[in-house]
Design a protein around this nucleic acid. Structure first.
Lengths: 139, 139
DNA sequence: CTGAATGCAAACGGTTTGCAAAGCT
DNA sequence: AGCTTTGCAAACCGTTTGCATTCAG
């Protein structure tokens, strides 16, 4: 029994065709951050007959199961990525749409200090930098 | 000619009733962060006959004019606040929905360093901490 | 065999838009 | 007077849901 089957079992999810295909898509895609539409399109391209509603349902279940993380960046569509356990924040190249991941322990620490100073504890947080290639004049 | 009238003129916007009322709402409201619905409701409450579409249009124009800043926090609705010139980030109490503003020069600096290290410059950024009152056991 | 999962189409919620009427300057 | 702005209703777009059918265990 392969890796992906186990992952679904572990999450208490039946091993269905749509779930397998979608999980597989994330694991093989070089582009880590995908929208529901991205997934849907790719499934269509590979002749799969999986409805958009199912894609959304599976993504939601995967998020609940901790398999995926959902991000609400600017621009309507939610973006999903595999949860590889290692927390990171994101930088988005506003010209190309490329997503760059980064980690900053210092920022993490400062965030906690700030929350604490106000009598709170952090439940979750979202840090996104919208960036543009350093002004070597753009082509 | 009062303050608010000038503000609209300066932005190149005609001084219309809906624009005056909405600008006024922001300037007098103790709650700095308002959604389109919030505005619409308050206008209804004060017997104003201003359509929701107009509220959205005015908010959009105010944002373009630099009068308001728009935030896309979690939870569908966009939130607007007056741009008082002083940049700050936000903490949201997930229990009460309260929005707390904070400033951290260190975090700002680190963000720039990170972007730079990757060959980018920051165009914009969004940092939101979703917090919960420090675990004095919750009621 | 039986409850869970799927596809479809219709509903949803926040926001935007087309258009004719009303309002600024 | 003439172009802008408004209100209304309809469109929009991403996402969710109801329901009859199909499928995994």
């Amino acid at each position: 029994m392969d890796q992906e089957t186990q992952e679904l079992r572990k999450a208490g999810l039946k091993v269905t065709h749509p779930r397998m295909r979608i999980l597989h898509l994330f694991e093989e895609s070089p582009q880590r951050h995908l929208t529901a539409e991205d997934i849907y399109r790719r499934l269509l391209d590979s002749q799969e007959d999986i409805g958009l509603a199912t894609v959304y349902r599976v993504l939601t279940q995967f998020e609940a199961a901790g398999i995926l993380i959902k991000h609400n960046f600017e621009g309507g569509q939610a973006v999903f990525e595999l949860d590889r356990g290692q927390h990171h924040d994101h930088m988005i190249d506003v010209d190309s749409g490329k997503v760059i991941e980064f980690v900053s322990d210092e920022i993490e620490k400062l965030q906690h200090e700030i929350a604490e100073r106000h009598g709170y504890e952090i439940q979750d947080h979202s840090l996104v930098l919208y960036v543009r290639p350093k002004s070597d004049q753009k082509k």
